[in-house]
Design a protein around this nucleic acid. Structure first.
Lengths: 199, 199
DNA sequence: GCCCCATGCCCAAGCGCGTCGACCACGAGG
DNA sequence: CCTCGTGGTCGACGCGCTTGGGCATGGGGC
C-alpha cells in the first residue's frame, strides 16, 4: 500500500473538530467545510473519510459517548471500589447531565443525532439499540438496592430505571436551554433519588 | 386598501401545512418551497406572510401549543368541574405527551424549535419565557395538594413541578424515538405520581 | 521488471436550500 | 391624476451536501 495512514486516528481528529464547532455554533450550523478547516484538512480529504455528514455525526456521537461511558466508569471507580447502588445510579445519571464542556458537547451531538433519527427509519433503529442496555443496567442496580433494603418498598426496578433515564433526559434539555443551571439539574436529580432511597 | 385579506387566517393555513409536512418528514426536512406547495400558495406569497423560516416556525409553534393548552383545559373541564390537583397535574403532563397525532406533531415542531434555540441567543430567550409560567402553575397545584394532605409529606412544590416537567420531556423524547410506546409513557407518568400522592 | 489497481486526495459541477431585492397590480385617499 | 401601501411574483445570490471524475503513488501478481 502507498502512504499508510492511521485511518481511525484521522477519523477521531475530524470528529473532535466537529465537537469543537458544534459546542459553540450548534451542530446544524457546522458545515462540512468548517469541520474540514477546523481539522486542518481539505474538504476532499474529509469526504474521503466520511462520505456523508450523517456518517460523520454517527461516528462523532459513538466516539464521544464512548468517552463519556469511560469517564463515568472511572469516576465511580475513583469514589470507592465497592460502590453502593445509589452511588452508581447517581453517577450514571450525573454523567449524562451537561455538567462540563465535554459532556455538554457530547449531548449536543447526541441531540442533533436524535433529531435526524426522528425522521429517518434507519437512524431510529440505530438509536433505539443503545437504551435497553443502559436501562437493563440501571434496573439491575435498583434491583440490587431493593434486595438489600436500601430503597423504599414497592419499587419496580425496570420502571425506576426508565423513569430515571427520562428524568435525566428532561433535565438535560432544560439545562441546555439554560432554563435551569446544571447545578440545579444535579440538585433535582438528588431530590428524586432521595425519594427512592431510605436514609 | 385593495383586496383585503384575513392575514391571520392565511398564516394559520400556512402553519397547518407546515405541521402536515413536519409530522412525516421531520421539520428540518420541510423546506419553504414544500410548505408553500402544501398550503397551495406560491413561495413568494408565503414569504409575504413569513419573511423567514424561523418566523414561520415560531408562529406555528405558538399556534399549535395554544391549541394544545386549550385541549388540556377542555379535557380537565370535561372530567369534573372541581378537579383534584392530582387530576390537573396528570392531565397537564399527559397533554404534553405524544398520545395522538396532533400533540405528536406539536411536539415535533417544538423540538425543531428547541434545536434552533440551542444555537441562537434570541430564540433561547424566547424559549425560556414559557417554562416559568407552567412551572409556577404546576407548583401551585402541588402546594394546594400538600396543604389538603393529598401528597406524601415533605414535598417541595417547586421542586416537584420541575421534576414533573423534566420527566414528561424525557418520556416524550423516548416515545418519539419509539423506544417506548406512548401508552408506556403514560403508565410511567402515573407510577411517578403514585409515589407523590397518598392513596 | 512491468503492469494493475487499491489507496489517498482533490476539484468542479449539480441540485436544493433560505433569503434578498426588484418588480407589477390594484384601489383608496390626497 | 398622482401617490402610496398592500398583496403577490420572480429571479438571482450564496451556501449547503453530495456526486463523479481525475490524479498521483507504491505494493503485489505475472
Amino acid at each position: 500500500m502507498p502512504k499508510r495512514v492511521d485511518h481511525e486516528e484521522r477519523r477521531r481528529r475530524i470528529a473532535e473538530a466537529l465537537w469543537r464547532i458544534a459546542s459553540t455554533r450548534g451542530l446544524e450550523g457546522a458545515s462540512m467545510r468548517d469541520v474540514a478547516a477546523e481539522a486542518g484538512v481539505s474538504l476532499g480529504q474529509l469526504q474521503h473519510y466520511f462520505a456523508t455528514k450523517d456518517e460523520l455525526i454517527v461516528f462523532a456521537l459513538e466516539h464521544i459517548s464512548g468517552l463519556g461511558e469511560e469517564r463515568i466508569r472511572r469516576r465511580i471507580a475513583a469514589i470507592t471500589e465497592d460502590p453502593a447502588p445509589r452511588t452508581v445510579l447517581r453517577e450514571c445519571a450525573a454523567g449524562m447531565l451537561p455538567l462540563d464542556d465535554e459532556s455538554r458537547t457530547g449531548l449536543l451531538v447526541g441531540i442533533a443525532y436524535f433529531i435526524r433519527a426522528l425522521g429517518d427509519e434507519r437512524l431510529r433503529r440505530h438509536a433505539q439499540e443503545g437504551q435497553p442496555a443502559l436501562r437493563g443496567f440501571l434496573a439491575g442496580q435498583f434491583r440490587q438496592a431493593a434486595e438489600s433494603g436500601e430503597t423504599v418498598p414497592g419499587l419496580d426496578p425496570d420502571t425506576e430505571a426508565m423513569l430515571l433515564i427520562a428524568l435525566t433526559d428532561g433535565l438535560t434539555s432544560s439545562a441546555l436551554l439554560e432554563v435551569i443551571t446544571p447545578e440545579e439539574a444535579l440538585e433535582l436529580l438528588d431530590r428524586h433519588l432521595d425519594r427512592l432511597f431510605v436514609a
